[in-house]
Amino acid sequence: MTTASIQIRPSSTLVFSAALLVFVGVVALVSLVALPQDPFDFITDEPFMPPAAGIWLGSDYLGRDVLSRLMDGTRITLFMAMTATLLAHLIGDTLGLTAAIRGGILDAALSRIVDVLLSLPKIIVGLVVVAALGSSIWVIIGIAAVVYSAGVFRIARALGTDLKNMDYIMLARSRGEGTLWILFGEILPHVIRPLATDFALRASFAILFMSSLSFIGLGVQPPLADWGGMARENLGGLSTNPLAAIAPAIAIALVSIALNLLVDALDDDARH
């Protein structure tokens, strides 16, 4: 009796993290339509003005509205993280599952490439590529997609290897089903859940990675700013308006923590 009631009621951390992520998503959508102020407009001559009525988070280093820039940054940050993670999973899942089913030289070659990618510090890869190509939103998304696809590949390959020798796959093969059909029709439905969990975790890594690049000045370039970029450009105002630097950094932490709690809750759920 009690176990049944526990199973129906989702845990409080799950509710908290899901609610927070939905809220952030809504803020990103709202920012597409309307913002309190123009995020690029100088609303005051005073840099780092403390919060006041109507300017709830004060002004930034150029006298722009921090709240509007934070909301605009939500859109940029989420777009970059989602795109990079989607690309990483698209590359990693397809190649990982294909490698597992086909085996042979393809598997060996892809696995060695992934070994090399995983033995590189990601932030250093980011720095070298930015040194070579310069920085833009798409360069950063591309770097994150490639470095995180390696970890996705490992997981997808392991999941695929577990499944490929199962009787029903053998049966599908003997029916003459092709690799692609087996991949999407027979295997994908069974691995979608662990892969979705990995997506959430990978998205939290991607957010931290890309905002770190922006924070050190090599990510999104001004006047655009993601959360990491905002935390950087407003560091000089800690004594008069600390919120300008700290609010975006807290936003990153909250989203990253919510994603991790979500993954933990989903893992627990899967175990019971």
């Binding site: 939290s204 905002s211 770190s212 924070f215 990491g228 935390a231 950094a249 932490a253 991790n260 933990d264």
Partner: peptide
């Protein structure tokens, strides 16, 4: 969990 998911710069 929270601290290990927090960016160093915060």
């Amino acid at each position: 969990l929270a601290l290990s998911a927090t960016p160093e710069f915060l």
